[in-house]
Every structure is written in structure tokens, then in C-alpha cells.
Design a protein around this nucleic acid. Structure first.
Lengths: 192, 192
DNA sequence: GCCGCCGATGTCAGTGACTGACATGCTATA
DNA sequence: TATAGCATGTCAGTCACTGACATCGGCGGC
């Protein structure tokens, strides 16, 4: 599969589309950017854009499947005898460096997403999908169905809280934010 | 502001649109229903549909603001000295009857929503908005910011879990589901 | 080295969600 | 009865997305 000299880059078309999209969204905002413009900047046609991404929003969501896989794998190989929440947080901590690695990308991305309702919705959907996947992973480790579903919901909620805090206030590392969330989650019920 | 004899009903146009939409969605599915068809069944124009609802999805989401208000009010008037999670669950239980009241409506609604990705996304957005509102309500009661945000996320996650279970398995009432979720949330941290 | 296959892309036409601008008709009130 | 005002209709336009078909370039078989 030779590359045949695409206009200006040997990058994969998909990657070029993502970069073009991120750039345009930052320059003009999501709503003011058309799919045709993104495609043009990437040197392809609008139709090609939609062959790579099922819709305009999806161009900003790609690492999600990798993250999901990593978390599920961590739960699958967790030591026996751990509680559901501990399996989850073990998994969250295991992807810490993965997330910290592409902070320079997820920073601007987060900015655009949180200021664009349509993108925010899509992110929530991704988080929900992640929740379901982790619930399944917990069930596979023998956690009863309902408990797995609830633990996944609560755990992912805490994880989302931690990453959100981390992205908006860089004074603490992601690892610290995760630990903090875990601890505060515990205190939440200790008090009552 | 007399009602001037709309085609076939003295119902408010908005209500007629909602009923028409729910009916058509159940008959043909969400994607196979156009906004123009909904409007036609309600006896108005497509343009009028979009004057009542900002987009096609929104026609199924209306009680949300009432629910949010009721929950926030419950937190605002909770007795002092309660922990954040207890304030939340007190609020959840306070809207139990409100929700059980329109189960005949929310049943079919839930069916369509959970089988339509676009609608599911919108529901998640509503839940997120609810989460933010409850976090604010907790802050107003003196809960520290970060803790309020985390408690709201975890609490709403448990509440969503409870209502979801309740809608899909009628063998338990909503109140029981809420109590169950509260108890299991406690066990989640007791174990680990 | 030529040929035919195939995958990636371009092209075109169409549907449907949404929007802004303007026209119209009915209600209420002077 | 005149008229201001609001709800609705009408019209034209943009843009996300899709299916069908054309094209082009590399690659394996011969």
C-alpha cells in the first residue's frame, strides 16, 4: 500500500483530518466549522471525511477505545480478592501515565469539548460506554451483576471527577487527583 | 389569550407535539420519523415544531426541569448536620412518588430513549446538568466545592442506577431501588 | 510487460434537521 | 372599528450526512 504522495504529508488521512479539525475548532469554534472545511484542510473531500468518521463530532474521540481496552485489561488481570471499587481504582491508576502522556493534546481538546454542548454530549456518551464496559469486566471477575453496574457507575463518576479536576487545575498530578477522589469517596459514606 | 379553536383540540400545541412525537417514535422509530411528520400529526407546521423545541430530541425531555427543581428544593430545606450523600438521598426519596406517578409515560419513553443512541446521548446530558445543579445545591448548604461535585456525581450515579433498574424490572418499587442503591453504595466501600 | 481486480477517493444528487426573514391572520384592547 | 401584538405559516437557504456510481492507481496473475 504505497502512499502515492498525498499533498503535503505521509500521515494517514484519518490523522490529518483529526489535526485539521482540532485546529479549525480552536480557530473558529466547532459550530462555525463545516465538515467540508476540515476535509479541505486535510486535502480530501467532504465525502472522505465521513468515510473516516461517522459524524462530525466523532473526529475528536479516538483514544476512547484504547482507554477502555487498557482499563478492562487491568481489571481482567487484577489480583483476586479485591473489592469491586479497588479493582476499578487499580485500573484507573494503571492508565495514569497513558493519560498524562497526551495531556498536550487533551488539554485543548477538553477546552473545546467543554465549551461546545454537542461535543459535551458525545463525551458523556463515551463515558457511559466506558461505564458499561467496566461493569462487564467486573462481572467477568465474579462481581454480582447489580453490584458491578453500581460500582462501575460510582467508580467512573469518581474517575471522571478526578480527570476533570486534573485538566482544569494543573497544580496536582492525575495520580494525586485519583487518590484524592478515592479517599473523598470513602469519607462520603464514613460521615453520613 | 383565548384559544381560538385549534384544529382538533384545546390542548397546548407543545403538549400535542409531545404526544404526536411519542406516538410516531413508537410506531416507526425515532430515525424514521421526521420533524415535519410530528408537526403534521399535531396539526402545525414543521417551523412551529422548532419554535416549541430547539431540536427534535428535546421533545422527549421536559419533566427534567421540574425534577431538578424538586431535588434542589429538597436539598435546600434539608435539616442541618446531614452529610452530603444523605442530603442527596433524602432528596431522591422525596421525588419518588413524583416519578412513580408518571411511570405510564416514562415507561415507553425510556424504551425509545434506550434504543436510540441520539436520544440516549441527550438523556446523559440531562443527567449531567442535574448533577451540576445538585452540586450547586450542596455548595449552598456549605459542602466544600470539590466534595460537593464528587458527592453529586456519585449520588446521581446511584440514583440513575436505581431508576434504571426500576424501569426495567418492575418487581421492586422505586423507593426500594433507591434504598438498595444507598445500601450497596455503602457496602462498596465497607469491603474493599 | 499487460490485464483485470480492488480499495481509496472523487463526484453527484438527495434527504432531513434546523434557521432567519418576512407575510398573515386572529385576539385583545382602546 | 382600528390597531398593536403574538402565534403561526411560508419560503429560501445552510449544513450534516448518505447512497450510487465513476475514476484512478497499485498489485497479483498470467
Amino acid at each position: 500500500m504505497g502512499v502515492g504522495f498525498m499533498a503535503n504529508s505521509r500521515d494517514d488521512v484519518g490523522v490529518r483530518l483529526q489535526q485539521a479539525a482540532l485546529g479549525l475548532f480552536r480557530e473558529r469554534g466547532y459550530d462555525q466549522t463545516t465538515a467540508a472545511e476540515i476535509a479541505a484542510r486535510a486535502g480530501v473531500t467532504e465525502r472522505t471525511f465521513f468515510r473516516y468518521f461517522p459524524d462530525k463530532r466523532e473526529v475528536l474521540f479516538d483514544g476512547e477505545s484504547r482507554l477502555e481496552a487498557a482499563l478492562a485489561a487491568s481489571i481482567a488481570e487484577a489480583p483476586d480478592g479485591l473489592g469491586a471499587l479497588d479493582m476499578l481504582f487499580r485500573a484507573f491508576r494503571s492508565v495514569q501515565s497513558l493519560l498524562e502522556g497526551n495531556r498536550p493534546f487533551s488539554g485543548p481538546r477538553h477546552e473545546i469539548i467543554s465549551s461546545t454542548p454537542a461535543l459535551h454530549e458525545r463525551e458523556l456518551a463515551k463515558i457511559a460506554a466506558l461505564t458499561d464496559a467496566l461493569a462487564e469486566a467486573l462481572k467477568a471477575r465474579g462481581v454480582p451483576d447489580l453490584q458491578a453496574a453500581l460500582a462501575a457507575r460510582a467508580g467512573v463518576a469518581a474517575f471522571a471527577h478526578a480527570t476533570s479536576c486534573w485538566l482544569e487545575d494543573p497544580s496536582l498530578g492525575l495520580g494525586d487527583r485519583i487518590d484524592l477522589a478515592y479517599r473523598e469517596l470513602g469519607e462520603l459514606l464514613g460521615r453520613g
